[in-house]
Amino acid sequence: MNKQRILAHFQESANLKLQAGAALAQPIGLAVELMFNALSNGNKILACGNGGSAADCQHFAAELVGRFERERLPLAAIALTTDTSILTAVGNDYSYQEIFSKQVQAFGQPGDVLLALSTSGNSPNVVAAIDAALERDMRIVALTGKGGGAIGKRLTDADVHICVPHDRTARIQEVHLLTIHCLCDGIDVALFGEDTND
């Protein structure tokens, strides 16, 4: 792979992050507030997505249960992408479309938040999880791209849609990862105040 092609990836990613920052700062701030309210009231965050988005869900949950950049008490977050017995049982006995919605029905409570990731906004199992969460009076924070797809149409005024203004999956995922870090930092600051070492 030639150097110019590699540099083009870096340039496109950097440009998109700067462009997306201006567009997404407000909804990211609203998502932090929604998650802070849930966690401070004893609720939890459930996260779901496929492929790279599944890895992002696990990353997010790990940062909350462990730590992001400061020592603090663990925060309640569960990635619905990790239990292979549940995923394969539900996928085999019902359908792959229900692998997350069944878990939302089992673990979700009113006041909880569902972090739903889909670069296309059209992943059927993520859409089904959103429907299940809304039925349980949960709030949604959706990370999408490509215009938001079916997920964007499912959300209510009480939910938060963070839609990356791009059509390329890799670039959308890169902004999703940065968004997750913003969410983790924002939650820490909301719960524990500014870190004097920043």
Rank of each mutant, 00 (worst) to 15 (best):
L177C: 13
P110W: 09
D198M: 14
N43V: 09
Q19E: 11
F100Q: 06
A22I: 15
L114D: 02
L7N: 10
I187V: 04
G149A: 01
N15E: 14
F107E: 08
E98L: 14
L16E: 02
Q58L: 10
R70K: 09
H9D: 04
R139W: 13
Y96C: 09
S85L: 14
A23V: 13
L134Y: 08
P124D: 00
F36S: 13
E71N: 15
N37K: 15
A54K: 03
V160L: 08
D188G: 00
L87I: 05
H59S: 03
T81V: 02
V104F: 15
L39V: 01
K44D: 02
A31H: 13
L134E: 05
A129M: 04
G21Y: 15
D198V: 15
L34Y: 15
S40E: 14
V189S: 10
A8Y: 13
L143C: 08
Q105T: 12
M138R: 06
F36A: 12
T82W: 13
I6P: 06
D167V: 10
A62E: 03
L177Q: 08
E135V: 09
I140S: 00
G186Y: 11
A190D: 14
R139Q: 08
G108H: 06
L75D: 07
A61W: 12
H9I: 07
G49L: 07
A54T: 00
F60I: 01
D56L: 06
C48W: 12
G145Y: 10
G91R: 11
H9S: 05
G52I: 01
T144E: 02
L80T: 03
V126T: 05
A20G: 04
R136I: 08
A25P: 10
D83T: 06
A25T: 11
G42Q: 00
I6L: 12
N2D: 12
I86L: 12
K153G: 03
R5W: 15
G91T: 06
E135G: 09
G52D: 03
M1L: 13
Y94E: 07
V164I: 05
T88C: 06
S118P: 06
L177E: 06
A129H: 03
V141A: 03
G193A: 10
G148C: 07
Q58W: 14
A31T: 04
C182V: 11
V141N: 01
F10I: 07
R171G: 04
K146S: 06
A22V: 14
K17D: 01
H176L: 07
A158Q: 15
S85T: 07
V164K: 02
Q109H: 15
F192M: 09
G149L: 00
A22K: 15
I86Y: 15
Q109L: 14
A89F: 12
R168F: 12
Y96G: 07
E98F: 14
